[in-house]
Design a binder for these strands. Sequence first.
DNA 1: CCTATTGTGTTTTTT
DNA 2: ACACAATAGG
Length: 790
Amino acid sequence: MFRDYLKELNEAQQAAVVNTSGPAMVIAGAGSGKTRVLTYRIAHLLQQGVKAHRILALTFTNKAAGEMKERIIRIVGPEKARYLWMGTFHSIFAKFLRYDGHHLGYKSNFTIYDQDNTRSLIRTIIKELNLNDSVYKPSSVAGRISYAKNNLITARQYSSDPQITESDKASRIPEMAAIYRHYAARCFKANAMDFDDLLMNINILFHDFPAVLEEYRNRFDYILVDEYQDTNYAQYIIVHKLSENHRNLCVVGDDAQSIYSFRGARIENILNFKNDYPDYQLFKLEQNYRSTQTIVNAANSVIEKNAGQISKTIFSKNEKGEKIRVIQTTIDSEEGSLTASDILDTRMRERLNWSDFAILYRTNAQSRIFEERLRKRNIPYKIYGGQSFYERKEIRDLIAYLRLVVNPDDEEALRRIINYPRRGIGDTTIMKLMELARSLDMSIWSIISSQELSAKYLAPALRAKVSHFTGLMLPVMAVAETATAYDIAFSMAAASGILNELKQGQVPEEIDRLENVQELLNGIKEFTESAVTNGEPADIATWLQSVSLLTDQDMEKPEDRDKVTLMTIHSAKGLEFKHVYIAGLEENLFPSAMNLFNPRELEEERRLFYVALTRACRRVTLSYALNRYKWGTLERSSPSRFIGEIESEFLCYPQTGGKPFGQRAFYEPGPAGIIPDQPLTFSPTARMTRLRDLKAPSTAERVNGAGSAGNGAAGDTAGRSVTGHGGGRSKGMDGSGGAGRCTGKGDSSTGTGMGSGTGMGGGTGLGGGAISTGTGNGGAGTEMGSGTGM
DNA sequence: CCTATTGTGTTTTTT
DNA sequence: ACACAATAGG
Ligand SMILES: Nc1ncnc2c1ncn2[C@@H]1O[C@H](COP(=O)(O)OP(=O)(O)OP(=O)(O)O)[C@@H](O)[C@H]1O
């Protein structure tokens, strides 16, 4: 039973794990085991006899929390770990607010508005205030409100702060404060909180109700925060208030990986720690166990370009490994094809799992091409981000019904489904109802569900339609608290007419929708059953709560385990993969055009690149396309400056035989700048260029093989992806080995490589040729590539 | 009130 | 390219 878990840590890590009392900060580069330290520290606390429910650990995703908990269980066993408080800030504090939100006037059944709800509410408010929505763009208004909330500025404070109102005036958005006030009031009346409210309201609660704060303070003896560099001001205050008595606060982070400033994250939270806790212990971890030396050193050479870093050493004792490959393609679809075939080849050659591969990109929009190309080759993949299951129309519709059942004042939900399926209650009517509700200071539901009020205010025809609607809702609402989630969901799906409506569907996509709804119902059924067996609450409100705070990664299905991962770099934070492809390394895409002109934002893009590079254990492949479809039109692009920021000794250019692409290789603005996507699509037989044929020169001198702690066990990473739940996240922290073995088969040898060169270098720059010939056979591109380079 | 059409913005990143 | 919102016409 007893496991000497301390042996699985290096000295610096051990120190950070065993010195559990007082304020502590672990600040260290990527892959140095920060998350591992946090995990073991919690295990250690439990082993020392601290009760699980006295420990609060805040992570970035719920999935990360789940994995951490599993690893803790493997060390200390399930009993001791059972009642740990672990989760995201949002999910933990939403739970607190269910209990104590009433102090602020919220009912415990409050709804959590997601981004869509928020945006649509803001849109209606803008309309109601007769403002021009091209001046007050809903998305930027939402951004501004969110920013305010993250900095604990309430609507009232916002309105009365001269500095803010002046600056809004100067930016020609003087009504911003009014929108914020209306928005806040409407959310409150709807008994709803948006994501940012969850944090801000906790702060208000703690500020205005000292007794409540005291209660929560006394509830935990140890507080731990992962990914501290990406916490915002609101989160910072919460954490500090909660730990004020015992001061057992441990935060873990890396300033070089702070990539969420757009949602309020503040690196200052790290920098200020020493001022807040002058007596704090600082732990630095310097050995990277994840990646090859090449990758670690390359990443270091990039991040050095940022000014004002906390200085850190980070080295790897793993093998030197392959160089980072730079791949140039003519067009985005070719980038997809090359990546797909390279994954295929590499997987065979190194006998890996699909889950050992990840394709990372800057924007979700880039995923499409990869999807297409991977599908064409029958490579299983999973996509995170973008539209998730819960964001599909039919799913949102049913969920809106359920939300209304739980919280009849949820105006956004009501508005969505009062006329779906069609009940003859059109937009104008809904508008009128909203106005009426506003003038009576009541929710729409409370009007239409009251005999008296609807008799008084509604025309008879409308009354009939509306009472049909209330008639189907009321019976379900009546049992909302007693019936199980599944019973509610199923009867709602039936009573609402959604099932019937979808059953009418003939087109394949309509049939898909029905299947999706059924899948949702199945999901709710599973939730219900497992809750019942575990003696946990199985009601619909609980289900809704958990579902509204899910992140993409939280809802991975078991069958997704062994698949190639496609995700944005942002969502890849904290994960690791043996092979990482970073795509779309083009100016204006990565770094994003929006962040080019501001040095601070450019530095954040660079950090993002650093995060991307350091996700890889064995090998990184960078790629870019000289032409890319953007909003339907083909646009030229040039390679990202970030490629050049990697120390050149770590790069290789397999397509040219080793030399960087010369200027000439880039696309010259030829006459007919259009190259049809056709060739790649229609000539699968054409010999595609394969990166395989272009292998990197071997740098694998096999430096003292297995990294130090080798611990044998290597298995971890590999093993996990097969059995573990982790899906994409093959981060291995459990057993020993861990990534230790990112060794790549030394023999990269074969290097057939490179060869052939012609490709780029030589020719008239591929661009030209391929493109102008275009039509005929876009083959040109391919063809030319074929034997030779490119 | 519903449907078909036009028009618009969307793509930076997410709890 | 595409989805979705605003508009017009039935
Ligand atoms: N002492 C160790 N011995 C063996 N493997 C280790 C050790 N410490 C960490 N690792 C492994 O190194 C990898 C990175 O660890 P971890 O994810 O904890 O690092 P991190 O600092 O949180 O990384 P990031 O900042 O990139 O999220 C994991 O695969 C982990 O299992």
